[in-house]
Computed example of a mutant assay.
Amino acid sequence: MKITPNQAAFNKPQTHMQKTAKEKEDTVKTNESIANKQVDQYIPSQQEKSVVYEKPMAKPDMPTIDRLKAESEKVHENLMNLVRQLLERQGINMEDAVSGKKEVVVDEQARLEAQTAIGEGGPLSPEKLSDSIVDFANAISGGDKSKFDLLKNAIEEGFNEAKKALGGELPEISQKTYDLVMEKLNKWKDEVSE
């Protein structure tokens, strides 16, 4: 029997010390490259305490806004129905009435219905309309009285636009509504917050 030695068994693996100079240089470059790369780190934030009181922002009162919008739409629809019925009784369509081609005569039935709508307790009375306008202003501001001037200016602008549309002057009932709105708005501003 003859034994032949296995050459692979005599080849020892190189250790770190036995590496060539080029391999050592490559290893050093790789290690330096890794060390120079920016690494993501978690740095917990620190909350800063405010030294002043910050009033929380007021949020609009959406349920009240939605209620007022629904009421307004109902009143508008009733008013439109009153006009439609008046025109139908006279055989006039809306286009002819708006264009002025045909004269519209307010009959007794329409006059009484309109009088009820704008009269005391009616949905278009100065008292009810002024309540709705001030309630809306309060709701849209979230009750934030610091917005008083902004709200007042917007309401004044709306009444001024109505004046322009009506030839420069408000009818007596609209002027009364405006006066009540300003009175109630000022009262709301001066109320002591609870």
Rank of each mutant, 00 (worst) to 15 (best):
M1I: 07
K2R: 14
I3D: 01
T4M: 11
P5W: 15
N6L: 11
A8H: 07
T15E: 07
T15C: 09
T15F: 12
Q18R: 04
K19N: 11
T20K: 07
A21L: 14
A21V: 15
V28I: 06
T30P: 01
N31L: 12
E32R: 13
I34E: 03
A35V: 06
A35W: 00
N36R: 08
V39H: 05
P44F: 04
S45E: 06
Q46R: 12
Q46D: 07
Q47F: 07
K49L: 06
V52C: 10
P56T: 05
M57Y: 14
M57C: 12
K59H: 15
P60T: 12
M62H: 10
T64Q: 08
D66Q: 09
D66R: 14
R67A: 14
L68H: 08
E71D: 10
E71L: 12
V75C: 03
V75W: 02
E77L: 04
E77G: 08
E77Y: 03
N78G: 11
N78M: 12
N78L: 06
L79A: 03
L79R: 00
M80R: 10
N81T: 00
L82A: 05
L82K: 06
V83Q: 15
L86Q: 10
L87W: 01
L87R: 03
E88L: 12
E88S: 02
Q90P: 05
G91T: 10
M94R: 08
M94I: 13
D96E: 14
G100P: 08
G100E: 06
K101F: 12
E113A: 07
G119S: 09
G121S: 05
P123F: 04
L124P: 13
K128T: 10
K128G: 10
L129W: 08
L129F: 08
S130L: 09
S132L: 14
I133Y: 01
V134M: 07
D135M: 07
A137S: 05
G142N: 00
G142L: 01
G142H: 00
G143Y: 02
D144R: 01
K147F: 13
F148Y: 07
L150P: 08
L151G: 08
K152I: 04
K152P: 00
E157S: 15
F159M: 04
A162Q: 05
K163D: 15
G167F: 13
G168A: 05
G168Y: 08
E169S: 13
E169D: 11
E169T: 15
L170D: 10
E172N: 08
I173M: 15
I173K: 15
S174Y: 12
S174K: 13
T177I: 09
T177D: 00
Y178W: 11
V181A: 02
M182N: 08
K184E: 02
L185P: 00
N186Y: 03
K189D: 05
D190E: 14
E191C: 06
E191I: 13
V192I: 15
S193E: 11
E194L: 13
